[in-house]
Design a protein around this nucleic acid. Structure first.
Length: 692
RNA sequence: GCCGCUGUAGCUCAGUGGUAGAGCACACCCUUGGUAAGGGUGAGGUCGUGGGUUCAAGUCCCACUAGCGGCUCCA
């Protein structure tokens, strides 16, 4: 006789075991029909689950009471759709072996092993979707049944899929004494799958679905294991929601920094130059220069000294730092001295021998620098330091080169040559906490100015079970404590992630999402006890003894390339005035107004505004459209009326209507102010007050 | 690096074995205009590269190269 507690605290008692659906029916038929699943004691379950003991029950309906999408309901729906898709795929390609098909953000996927002679092609989508539609139309019930483990295992074995057998073993290892199966319809008659569930009540609940794309994956995520085909799809309760989702994807595509980079002429990647190597066009260069000037000014305030170092360094430098040969895979191959090269070639040295010689140090050469630290360390070490000098803060917009895997390259966000807004701080152990805090506040300042508040902070700590870390455990304790305290003082949520530390020290990373939901690490602050050791760095303490300084690596933007890539998407290409490559465009209505337009342009140039003149022989409507497409902050329409009043008619980005006319001098001073204050005052504000 | 998809004019794309196309951008002409595309004419292509099949290849096959979506990786 179960007593069931509902979310509102009310308790319902039943004489006999009841299903969650029965409970819903006893509350109301309409509710029951809207239900797709339930939580029984906080565990997401089938609506058909029979309840025979006291519990808390929360029903899951298609939409929440506020008519919003219910994430739990969508998860049930999508997992169920994954089953329907798998059945449809096996109808089309019967030899397809299913592996694993979970719901994910925005949809679901199913990893499937296809026979080599019959891979899945995107041309198959239509046929599969047709099969899916018919399964949905049949409105078959998802029917669960549980078998005792050994019995279930026999059943899975008899089906002959090593993948499903593996899933069964995994379930057992996780402590499950039974195996659950779901039939899409009637067990023994209809299609079924080993599955933990839960599912929506029946296939008819799937209102709208679409197979999105094919990708590949590895079994167990192991690149040496079987290659699987991952079929991505999505599903919603109705067509309208699906269409809205597809439209959102289209919108996101328009914000993609690779698309906008081309349209707004911000950067170019050229096959002839090389993969992952960014060519900054004039527009993009303006953007980058503004950011660099901004950050350089902030650094000066914080007592940093700017330095410049070359793009290459001797191999031996990186042997000392430990970066070579341990990270040889992710570096550009070394440059070997000419005479050496000739000699080796005459000796008939093989590539493997050459590589060994370089590792052992028998051959000297240079490396494109994969990071700036060794160079900065050598600057620190070029003279003796007193504890009174510390901290020493060396900053450089340093360009580094890393051999990223070709498949990982992505627009500006994953490249092979990039410029870090790098700095290295050398300080006493006591100063670590304070310095880390200074770094974090700098990052926060920058993010605030740019209005980037949608990021997360990750504190990477040691994995207590791993021995890969170097350095004194007591120093680690201190550094981790300092990082956590610093993160706390930031006043934004952060996560602690054991095992995410670098081998030489803990770190704090800033992670932001791009328009399609991928996360990118931007700024980073890392505490390092290792390199000072390796390079035998020291300072003289108050006790007149040598002491080991601690190093802090920090790059608040991460790299100019990745940061600007993310920034393009953040602003959707509509940059604030201080960053906009073209801040103002002057649009004369006809040739008759060209002369006055020229005056306006000169007035803007005189105060350092990046302004251009569109004196093309087209109508002003066309000029406005073009300017709007370039997402210009301001367009000034000037015609005879404006010339007469020495005014400009203002159009601001994001405001459909024109703002009307404003005296030229007022506009000039207002936009100069908007530029200078990085948007804290704007033409738009001023416009309300002063107009003609 | 691996799997799949894609590569045609500056850009976005159509063209599936038989003379290379459209829109936008560009040039010239007409138009001199008041808030998201005025009209006309023209120029622009070794169809990513290299091989192969074929009487004939942008189209089919192979290799390479680059981009995209994932996987793996990211000091």
């Amino acid at each position: 006789m179960p007593s069931i507690t509902l979310p509102d605290g009310s308790v319902r008692s039943y004489d006999a075991p009841v299903s969650a659906f029965d409970v819903a029916m006893s509350i109301g038929e309409r509710l029951a029909r809207a239900c797709v699943g339930c939580f029984i004691n906080d565990e997401l379950s089938d609506l058909s689950t029979v309840i025979d003991a006291d519990c808390e029950l929360k029903l899951v309906t298609e939409k929440t009471r506020e008519k919003k999408d219910d994430p739990d309901a969508l998860q049930l729906l999508r997992h169920s759709t994954a089953h329907v898709m798998a059945e449809a795929i096996q109808r089309v390609i019967p030899e397809a072996m299913l592996v694993y098909g979970p719901p994910v953000d925005n949809g679901f996927y199913y990893d499937i092993a296809f026979p080599e002679d019959r891979p899945l092609k995107d041309g198959d989508f239509e046929a599969i979707e047709t099969e899916m539609a018919s399964i949905v139309k049949e409105d078959r019930k998802f029917t669960r049944y549980d078998l005792e483990y050994s019995e279930g295992l026999e059943k899975v074995k008899s089906e002959g899929s090593k993948y499903k057998l593996d899933n069964a073993h995994a379930a057992h290892r996780a402590g499950s004494m039974t195996l659950s199966f779901y039939a899409t319809g009637e067990p023994g008659k209809d299609w079924e799958d080993l599955c933990r569930g839960p599912h929506v009540p029946s296939t008819g609940r799937i209102g709208a679905f679409k197979i999105m794309s094919l990708a590949s994956s590895y079994w167990h995520g192991d690149e040496n294991s079987d290659r699987l085909t991952r079929v991505y799809g999505t599903a919603f309760f109705n067509k309208k929601d699906l269409n809205a989702h597809l439209e959102r994807l289209e919108e996101a595509k328009k914000r993609d920094h690779r698309v906008l980079g081309k349209k707004l002429k911000l950067f170019h990647i050229d096959e002839a130059v090389g993969q992952g190597l960014i060519l900054w066009t004039p527009n993009g260069s303006v953007l980058r220069k503004e950011l660099q000037q901004f950050i350089a000014a902030e650094l000066e305030k914080q007592g940093y000294h700017e330095v410049f170092t070359p793009h290459i360094g001797k191999l031996d430098l990186y042997r000392t730092s430990g970066h070579f040969p341990y990270y040889a895979e992710s570096q550009f191959p070394p440059l070997i001295e000419r005479d050496h090269m000739v000699q080796l070639s005459d000796e008939g040295c093989s590539c493997a021998q050459l590589s060994n010689h370089m590792k052992t140090g028998e051959i000297e050469g240079f490396m494109l620098k994969p990071m700036n630290c060794p160079h900065h360390i050598k600057i620190y070490d070029s003279q003796p330091h007193s504890y009174k000098d510390l901290p020493v803060r060396l900053a450089e917009f340093g360009t580094v080169y890393r051999w990223e895997q070709s498949g990982e390259l992505n627009g500006m966000t994953r490249v092979r040559g990039f410029t870090q807004d790098d700095a290295h701080l050398f300080c006493t152990p006591e100063q670590v906490g304070h310095e880390v805090q200074g770094c974090l506040s700098l990052v926060k300042t920058i993010f605030n100015i740019l209005g980037m508040d949608d990021y997360r902070v990750r504190v990477g700590l040691r994995d207590p079970d791993s021995g890969k870390y170097t350095g004194d455990p007591s120093n680690w304790d201190k550094a981790e404590k300092a990082c956590l305290e610093a993160a706390e003082s930031l006043g934004v949520p952060f996560t602690q992630e054991p095992g995410e530390a670098a081998f030489y020290g803990p770190k704090i990373d800033f992670v932001v999402k791009d328009v399609i939901g991928r996360e990118w690490q931007l700024g980073t602050v890392q505490v390092d006890y290792n390199l000072p050791e390796r390079f035998d760095l020291s300072y003289i303490g108050a006790d007149n003894e040598k002491h080991r300084p601690v190093m802090i690596h920090r790059a608040p933007f991460g790299s100019m390339e990745r940061f600007i890539g993310v920034l393009i998407e953040h602003f959707a290409g509509a940059f604030p005035v201080w960053l906009a490559p073209e801040q103002v465009r002057v649009l004369p209505i006809s040739e008759k107004s060209n002369e006055y337009a020229g005056e306006v342009l000169s007035a803007l140039h005189a105060v350092g505004i990046r302004a251009t003149l569109d004196d093309a022989d087209t109508r002003v409507q066309a000029k406005i459209k073009q300017g709007a497409e370039m997402k210009l902050p301001y367009m000034l329409i000037v015609g005879p009326r404006d010339a007469e009043n020495r005014a400009v008619s203002v159009r601001a980005h994001g405001i459909q209507k024109d703002l009307g006319a404003m005296p030229l001098d007022n506009f000039v001073s207002a936009i100069a102010e908007e530029y200078r204050t990085k948007g804290r005052s704007s033409v738009k504000d001023r416009f309300q007050l002063v107009s003609v």
